[in-house]
C-alpha cells in the first residue's frame, strides 16, 4: 500500500513527476511528429500518445540527473524510425511537406512561409533535420548536440551552413 502511494506520488505529483513532464513536452513532441509525418494530424497525435506511454513505461528507469527533453526526443526519434519501418510507409522527408492545398490550409501559412517550407524540403535530410530542430522544435545548440551526440561547435557550424544553403535556394 505504501509502495502504491509512493508510486503515485512519483508519477503524478511534483516537479519531477511524469505528469508535469507531459504537460511541458506534449506540444513539442506533437510538433516534432507533425513536421515529420507530412502534417498528418491523426498520425502525429497517435505517435505522440504512443511516445508518452512508452516513456511512462520506462520512466522508473529514467535518470533524473539527465535531461528529460533529450530522453523524450530520443524516444520520439526512435519511435518515428520504427513507425516508418514497421508500417513500411517510407515517407521521405525530401518529399514536399505540403503535398496538397488542403494540407497548407490546415495550418494556415502565408505565401512566404509556404515558400520557405517548400525550400526546406528541398534540402538534404541532415540540413532539413537540423533546421527543424533549431527553428521548429526550438531546441538550443547544446540540446541538439546532446541529441545528435555531436559537439556544440559542430552543430553551430552545421546550422549556419544549412541556413546558407536555404538562403541560396530562396534567392534563386
Amino acid at each position: 500500500m505504501v509502495n502504491l502511494f509512493v508510486y503515485y506520488i512519483a508519477m503524478g505529483v511534483g516537479q519531477d513527476s511524469f505528469i508535469s513532464y507531459y504537460e511541458k513536452y506534449k506540444d513539442k513532441i506533437y510538433l516534432y511528429f507533425l513536421y515529420r509525418v507530412n502534417f498528418n494530424r491523426d498520425t502525429a497525435e497517435d505517435l505522440t500518445s504512443e511516445v508518452f506511454l512508452k516513456a511512462l513505461k520506462s520512466f522508473e528507469n529514467f535518470d533524473h540527473n539527465r535531461s528529460f527533453q533529450a530522453w523524450i526526443y530520443a524516444i520520439a526519434h526512435n519511435h518515428l524510425v520504427n513507425y516508418y519501418r514497421t508500417a513500411k510507409r517510407e515517407v521521405e522527408l525530401t518529399e514536399n511537406i505540403f503535398s496538397t492545398k488542403e494540407d497548407i490550409k490546415k495550418i494556415e501559412v502565408n505565401y512566404e512561409l509556404d515558400l520557405v517550407l517548400k525550400e526546406i524540403n528541398g534540402l538534404e535530410d541532415s540540413d532539413k533535420e537540423i533546421l527543424l530542430m533549431r527553428f521548429v522544435d526550438e531546441l538550443t545548440n547544446p540540446e541538439i548536440a546532446d541529441l545528435l551526440d555531436k559537439e556544440e561547435g559542430a552543430i553551430r557550424t552545421k546550422i549556419s551552413r544549412s541556413l546558407d544553403k536555404l538562403r541560396k535556394k530562396l534567392e534563386k
Binding site: D27, Y30, L31, L34, R41, I107, E108, V109, E112, L113, V116, L117, L131, R134, F135, V136, L163, L166, R167, L170
Partner: peptide, 12 residues
C-alpha cells in the same frame, strides 16, 4: 531567414 523560420506554424 531565421525570423521566417522561427515563425513557422506551431500547432498545439
Amino acid at each position: 531567414l531565421e525570423k521566417y523560420l522561427s515563425n513557422l506554424p506551431k500547432p498545439k
